[in-house]
């Protein structure tokens, strides 16, 4: 894929992209075939090699959104690039939370026999998902770029406050019901060396993937903003130049 066919690509992202692709193949091979079966869980532990990195990336993504939002609000440099990184990162975060909820649910079906358990971790993760869906919805409200940036930045920081609050409440809520022990019994696993390596490989791979995705998506949003602000002018200019050539 040459740089010209992907307007958001550069040599750096191409290198990163190929490296990530190679690591992904390595992860799949190790995850599905090479790594051993767990003593207790059997082959269901293989799901962990994509589930854990997914939720890790989601947390990284939302943390990035929060940090960048704080930078935007506080700094002298009110570059809209910060806002676009926040938006791109949150979008990717939502994707990975969804993936982790689905893979976690599939894992749960195999381990606990049900697709869903009302334990603190899962419930909080579901809330995380809904909260950032709301964040993305607010980003789509319209108005000027500055309005969008300011609103979203405040919302992102509110989310950082409210998510621990929700998690705390949910933990207390579940601790009343003594059922958390059932859910926990499957998740704390003894991993041998190769399994640990595969998990680590997963985390590294997904992190690189995340960086690649944020770079491209953020640039894509920059293009979108450019089009929204003066895309029509550019199109008219292009037509005019074509007409002159003829």
């Amino acid at each position: 894929m040459s740089a010209t066919s992907t307007p958001t690509g550069t040599r750096a992202t191409r290198v990163l992209g190929f490296a990530t692709l190679a690591l992904t193949v390595w992860l799949i091979v190790f995850g599905l075939f090479v790594s051993a079966e767990d003593v207790v869980q059997g082959s269901t532990v293989r799901i962990m090699y994509v589930h854990v990195p997914s939720i890790w990336v989601a947390y990284v993504a939302f943390a990035l959104t929060a940090v960048v939002s704080a930078v935007y609000l506080s700094g002298k440099n009110r570059s809209l690039a910060w806002d676009r990184v926040a938006g791109a990162s949150a979008e990717i975060g939502v994707l990975f939370v969804a993936i982790s909820l689905i893979t976690g649910s599939l894992w749960g079906r195999l381990t606990w026999g049900t697709y869903w358990v009302w334990d603190a971790r899962l419930t909080s993760t579901a809330f995380l998902f809904i909260t950032y869906i709301g964040y993305l919805a607010v980003r789509g409200l319209g108005g000027t770029f500055r309005q969008r940036a300011r609103r979203s930045a405040v919302l992102a920081l509110l989310a950082v406050l409210e998510i621990p609050l929700v998690h705390f409440s949910v933990v207390i809520w579940r601790s009343l019901h003594q059922e958390s022990t059932v859910a926990n019994s499957g998740t704390d696993v003894e991993l041998d060396g190769l399994m640990l390596f595969t998990l680590f490989l997963g985390i590294v791979t997904f992190t690189m993937l995340f960086v690649w995705m944020v770079l491209h998506r953020q640039r894509g949003l920059a293009l979108q903003d450019a089009v929204d602000s003066h895309g029509l002018d550019v199109a008219i200019e292009q037509r005019r130049q074509e007409a002159e050539v003829r």
Binding site: F127, I130, T131, I133, G134, A137, V138, L141, E162, L165, V166, F168, S169, V170, I172, W173
Partner: peptide, 16 residues
Amino acid sequence: LLPLLLLPVVAPVLIG
């Protein structure tokens, strides 16, 4: 948009 934004946030109050 209001229900989507509001309801996750009121969860702690609802629980308490």
